[in-house]
Amino acid sequence: MAANRESSVSLKLLIDEKTNRVVDAEAEKDFVDILFSFLSFPILGDSNADDVNAKGLLCNLTMSNEFFDFLCSFLTVSIGSVIRALEGNSGLGCIDNLYTSVKDLDEKWFGSDVKDIILDPRIAQYHNCKRQSLIFPDRYESFYMIDPRNGSTFAEEPSLFIVSDDLEVNPLSFASSLQLLKEVKVAFSDIEEQVITVGTKEALSLLKAALTSPSSALTNGLIPS
């Protein structure tokens, strides 16, 4: 079987030369697709209490199997569904801004019904504990996650977006670019343009930054320290 080739996308960054921080990114739909896909990821994947106990990962804790099963079920819930359940305030870095951006973007930037499914990705049947106190009702009778995309992408094409350092996503326009520069208080003369390639390594770094950085996901995820 042939090995899967790593895919990559190009991304234009506008960087403040004085601070070496990203002001914004000018992105085509391929990069925005990467960002939107973060919301569809399960926090970990399917888990099993017996497997975890067998590995000896529980130390000095006493709990019933049902409660431990309940805790493990948290890891199977998608990031988007978690943020929705917490009404957009998960405390998970900049990912809340990404969720709000999807919520605020007009339907025309997405395929049919894609927007709602990005905001609340559905969980496959059996990827939950038997006595679940949290209600995530949208499940398919399948072990497989649904594919919410329109064809092969989340965003409609052609699409151009501006992405701020804290992962606010808006349609690209002169007005939106100018407004962002005013908000971050960076002079045009201090702006440096860089075009980078975002592959697997960069996407993983960006995902980590999106979940941990409160305001600088692009900088922390894509700019070498």
Rank of each mutant, 00 (worst) to 15 (best):
M1V: 14
M1H: 14
R5L: 15
E6V: 03
S7V: 07
S7F: 09
V9F: 07
V9Q: 04
L11F: 07
L11G: 09
L11K: 10
K12H: 00
L13N: 01
L13C: 00
I15F: 06
I15V: 13
D16N: 10
K18W: 11
T19F: 09
V22K: 04
A25Y: 09
E26P: 06
E28F: 05
K29L: 06
D30H: 00
D30Y: 02
V32H: 02
D33Q: 02
L35R: 00
S37H: 01
I43N: 04
S47P: 06
A49E: 12
D51Q: 10
D51K: 11
V52K: 02
A54Y: 15
K55W: 12
K55S: 08
G56W: 05
G56Q: 07
L61S: 12
N65C: 03
L71N: 03
L71F: 06
C72T: 05
C72N: 12
F74I: 08
F74T: 04
T76P: 08
S78K: 13
G80P: 03
S81M: 06
S81P: 08
V82W: 14
V82L: 13
R84Y: 15
A85Q: 10
L86F: 14
N89Y: 05
L92G: 03
G93E: 01
D96L: 05
L98D: 02
T100C: 08
S101T: 15
S101H: 14
K103W: 03
K103M: 00
D104R: 04
D104H: 03
L105S: 06
E107Y: 00
E107N: 06
S112T: 10
D113A: 09
I117E: 09
I118Y: 04
L119D: 05
D120A: 14
P121Y: 07
A124F: 08
Q125I: 14
H127E: 06
H127G: 09
H127P: 09
H127S: 12
C129R: 00
K130N: 07
Q132P: 02
Q132H: 04
I135M: 03
I135Q: 07
I135S: 01
F136W: 10
P137D: 05
P137F: 04
P137Q: 04
D138P: 15
R139H: 15
Y144F: 11
M145R: 13
I146A: 08
D147Y: 14
N150K: 15
S152Q: 11
S152D: 13
T153S: 12
T153F: 10
E157D: 04
E157V: 00
P158M: 12
I162E: 10
D166K: 09
E168Q: 04
V169D: 00
N170C: 08
L172W: 03
A175I: 12
A175W: 14
S176R: 15
Q179I: 10
L180P: 15
L181Y: 10
L181E: 14
K182S: 08
V184G: 14
V184E: 14
K185M: 14
V186C: 15
F188N: 10
D190Y: 10
I191N: 06
E193N: 15
Q194C: 03
V195K: 15
I196G: 04
V198D: 01
G199E: 02
E202I: 00
A203H: 01
S205H: 01
A209F: 08
A210N: 01
S213M: 03
S213P: 06
P214Y: 13
S215C: 08
S216C: 11
T219R: 03
N220M: 13
N220H: 11
L222E: 03
I223C: 05
I223T: 06
S225E: 13
